[in-house]
Write a protein that binds this DNA or RNA. Structure first.
Lengths: 142, 142
DNA sequence: TTTATAAAGGATATAAATCTCTTTTAATAT
DNA sequence: ATATTAAAAGAGATTTATATCCTTTATAAA
C-alpha cells in the first residue's frame, strides 16, 4: 500500500458507505466489523472525516454515518491527503538529493512517469464511480 | 518515496560508496555529511549493512567503509528489503479486503501493472550500473 | 428518564528515527 | 613497548509519529 493505515481505513470506510443505500445511517461499529478495522480507531477517523465534510454524523439512538455529496465526487487521493497528508512525495526512488530534472539519476524519468500514473489512477475517478463499478463484482462474488 | 527513511538512507549511502575510487575507505561521518544523513543513525545502518555483507568495515584510525562486490551486483530492491523489510505490499490502492484477482476492484488491474513496473524499475539494474550511469551526470553538474 | 449513539479527549502501545555513551580495535606517535 | 588517537561496534535512552484503546460527555430517540 502506498499510504498509511489511517488513509487506508479512511478509504475502506468511505467506499463502504458509498455502497450503502441512499440515506441509510450506518454505525461506526458496523463499518469496523464488516471492513475489519479497529473500532475506536475508525471512530476517530470518521470524526475527522465529519469535520472535513466527507461524512454526515448523527448522534444519539438510531444515529450513525452517511457519505456526503462532497465525498462522492471527491477522488481517493483527495480524501487520503486530507486525512493523512501528502501521499508519496516527489523524491526519486534513488532518494539522491542531487537528483532532479536538471541532473536526473538513471531511474528518474521512468519513476516520474510511474508516479504520475499512480497519481492519475487514484485521482481521476470519483469515489462514487469506483463504488458503482465495484458493486456488481462484489455481488457476483456472493 | 516508496520506502522508509532507513531504506532511503541505506541506498543513498551505498550509491555514494559505489561512486568512490576502488579500495578507498570512507568514514561514516563523511557519508553522513555529504549525503545529509543523521550521523549516528547512518552509523547503525552501515553496521547492519556490514553484517549483511554489503559493506566491509575497518575499525581504528584510518578506518572506514567500502562497498563489497555483493552490493555492487545487488539491486536497489534487494538492499532495501534486506534493511527494512518488504517494500510496498501486495494490497491494492483501494485497500479493500475483498479485492483480489478473483474479484478485482476497479483500480486493481492498473495498480497491479504499475506495481510490477515499480518492482522492475528498482530490481532490474544493479547498484553498480546505476552508479556508473549517474556519475557523468553528476560531473556535468559541477 | 432510560438507552443507544457519536464526539471528545486522553492513555497506552508500538515502531521508526535520532542521539548518547561506552567498548573494541587498529594505527601512529612517543 | 606504551600511550594516544581515530575509527567502528554495540547497548540503550530519547523523541516523534502512528496506531490503538478507554473513559467521559453530549445528544437524540424511545
Amino acid at each position: 500500500m502506498i499510504y498509511t493505515k489511517t488513509g487506508e481505513y479512511a478509504i475502506r470506510a468511505i467506499l463502504f458507505l458509498a455502497r450503502q443505500p441512499k440515506e441509510a445511517l450506518i454505525m461506526s461499529s458496523e463499518i469496523a466489523e464488516k471492513e475489519d478495522i479497529p473500532t475506536h480507531y475508525l471512530a476517530k477517523i470518521l470524526q475527522r472525516m465529519a469535520k472535513y465534510g466527507y461524512v454526515d454524523s448523527f448522534k444519539g439512538r438510531g444515529g450513525g454515518f452517511k457519505i456526503t455529496e462532497l465525498a462522492k465526487k471527491s477522488s481517493i487521493l483527495e480524501i487520503v491527503e486530507r486525512v493523512e497528508g501528502p501521499v508519496i512525495n516527489l523524491k526519486c526512488v534513488t532518494g539522491l538529493k542531487e537528483c532532479d530534472e536538471e541532473n536526473p539519476c538513471p531511474l528518474h524519468e521512468e519513476w516520474a512517469e510511474l508516479r504520475n500514473r499512480i497519481y492519475n489512477l487514484i485521482s481521476s475517478r470519483t469515489v462514487q464511480e469506483v463504488a458503482e463499478q465495484y458493486t456488481p463484482t462484489l455481488q457476483k462474488a456472493k
